[in-house]
Write a protein that binds this DNA or RNA. Structure first.
Lengths: 343, 343
DNA sequence: CTGAAAGCGCTTACAG
DNA sequence: CTGAAAGCGCTTACAG
């Protein structure tokens, strides 16, 4: 019952020109007189012509879509605001170029990889974003072999074969350590993220390097997994340490929140007994008591720039990696003077 | 330098059959002998043939994609876990049918509507989900006029023209009121959601009806907007009431969290001075102290069923609205005995 | 500048 | 069951 589709043939007919001229006119290509162009545009408007993306895709070699596979279990997808912000950022750019985002959720690594393969092989997309990169991530080669333009987010800088958008967080982690040292802290622990991700490594490395700058020994290192529960477990480990740290830098806010809650349940006061710093800058950090001192990243901006870069690659423009303004330290209530030392 | 695409012509050639036979064999259509079918499948496997989605779309009248436009400002997209859970649910179903999700983020109503129009007119999608429905939502007619199969989420049940997936929350809100009344509460307030959404109305109506069942007068009604800040503002209003309520039911968890935080900042104890109930069941509710009593909904399941229903419609199968298991009351720490009355 | 034709890679009637 | 042909709705060389 849907009214018959208006095609470019109808437009050309109404404008009294050839289909090829109509196409050129509509797409702003040269080789059409101003008069013809206007006549075609009027005809198209009169008929409410909207080109069929399917036909355009088939003949123009462009899908007008880019893909993202979120490769985490759905619980994380729900509780981690990164994705929503990143996607919102991507979406501020894509529509201006007629592009759409195809989103898949991979149950695990295998599943995620097969989604990328499927989208690439069936030519559903013209390019892809790669999040949560791992060391020697197989997806990089996989997509390259498929000839798929790809942009990585916060890839290691030695990953030369992958166009990337990065936000430095090492500087802000430095600042966090400086801040803590200034408050008298000498033993500063780290709760890391899931070890397979390069950003877990980057953050841990920044913590370590920052301490070296002060000639301080690295405090206890507890492996976390970016989750609230992981933060809670880390609290249990840390309070058992012979030399209990007086401050902790967590690999992300959510684990910092879990850590704080567990510390409180164990009868410790934050920050009087122990200071805690997160990384991310999620809203939740402002809801809690104490509110969370954190390193604020910019996933929305990362999404914007990643989308722009990916479209550049697709359109064959020269590619240079993008570095956005570094993450910044946000001081709130969860950090304070070290307990035993006068400052 | 991408290797030349393997097409169905190559497959047919290698199998020694006509293209049309290869197509029928590959798609499990009848009219092909078992022997031919196998020969074609072997040839396809040998050549690693993956059909071009673009060509399939153009000739088969299916885009193999469905669309969702998130029509909220990006802050909410980031802090509301509903979307992530809903999308994850949708994604457990779509891939089995070769479908993908096209996601757009609309800056506002206008923008969101134009995204739906664009996807439908260009035939990028075969169907659409409608979230955050409003009374007399113009998008319903818009998509119907475009002949676009559509599934609404928690639409009003009098919305006969829209296939819907629903989860009842009125029952659980009833239970929440029963629970509060049992604890001695007689004046129970409500912080509503943004008034334009039908689910805001549904929740408010459930609160009102529940009180009527006990012949209790409705407590103060404060308009919120589903945000943390809105919850904080509501707290300021409620503590000023002549008859201060001893319990509050909030339209969602996030506003309940804001409300609690503000009440605490004003020197009130939750639940000793005032009990608070949220709706949604987000993780955050378990992180706080007191943890949040809430009505837990099931966005993931809603997503699964919505996807299933939408595919049914697209494939021309008979459509019946889907009702999933009602939301359930989850008792935690934010509700307790009414302060002034012995229970 | 303009137009007729081929082609993108499939599916779908339609003969044989 | 099998195959040749038309068609989906565009874009892109290529003549004129």
């Amino acid at each position: 019952m849907v009214a018959k589709r208006v095609t470019i043939v109808d437009v050309a007919m109404r404008a009294g020109v050839a289909v090829s001229s109509a196409s050129a006119a509509l797409n702003g290509r040269p080789g059409v007189s101003q008069k013809t162009r206007e006549r075609v545009q009027t005809a198209a408007a009169d008929l409410s012509f909207v080109p069929s993306l399917r036909a355009q895709s088939l003949s123009s070699k462009h899908a007008f879509a880019v893909g993202l596979v979120v490769q985490r279990n759905s619980d994380v997808l729900e509780s981690d605001p990164f994705f929503g912000a990143f996607i919102a950022g991507v979406e501020t750019v894509l529509p201006h170029y007629g592009y759409a985002l195809v989103l898949h959720v991979g149950a695990d690594r295998e599943d995620a990889a097969s989604r990328y393969r499927g989208m690439a092989a069936s030519r559903r997309i013209d390019g892809a974003f790669l999040l949560d990169l791992e060391a020697n991530d197989p997806r990089i080669k996989q997509l390259r072999d498929l000839g798929m333009p790809t942009v990585g987010i916060n890839a290691n800088s030695d990953e030369a074969s992958l166009a990337s958008v990065r936000q430095d967080s090492a500087l802000a982690i430095n600042s966090a350590v400086d801040h803590l040292v200034g408050l008298g802290h000498r033993l500063i622990a780290h709760v890391s993220g899931s070890p397979q991700y390069v950003h877990s490594q980057q953050r841990m490395q920044a913590w370590r390097t920052s301490l070296e700058r002060w000639a301080l020994p690295p405090g206890p290192l507890v492996q976390g997994d970016f989750t609230y529960d992981g933060g809670q477990r880390a609290a249990d480990v840390l309070v058992q340490c012979r030399d209990r740290p007086t401050a902790v830098i967590c690999a992300n806010d959510l684990s910092a929140v879990g850590l704080i809650r567990r510390l409180q349940d164990l009868g410790l006061d934050v920050p009087a007994d122990i200071s805690v710093v997160g990384i991310d800058g999620i809203e939740l950090g402002t809801y809690l008591r104490p509110s969370l001192t954190t390193v604020r990243t910019a996933p929305h901006l990362l999404g914007e720039r990643a989308a722009q870069l990916l479209l550049d690659i697709i359109h064959g423009q020269p590619v240079v990696d993008v570095e956005i303004t570094p993450a910044e330290l946000v001081l709130r209530e969860s950090t304070g003077a070290a307990p035993t030392e006068a400052v």
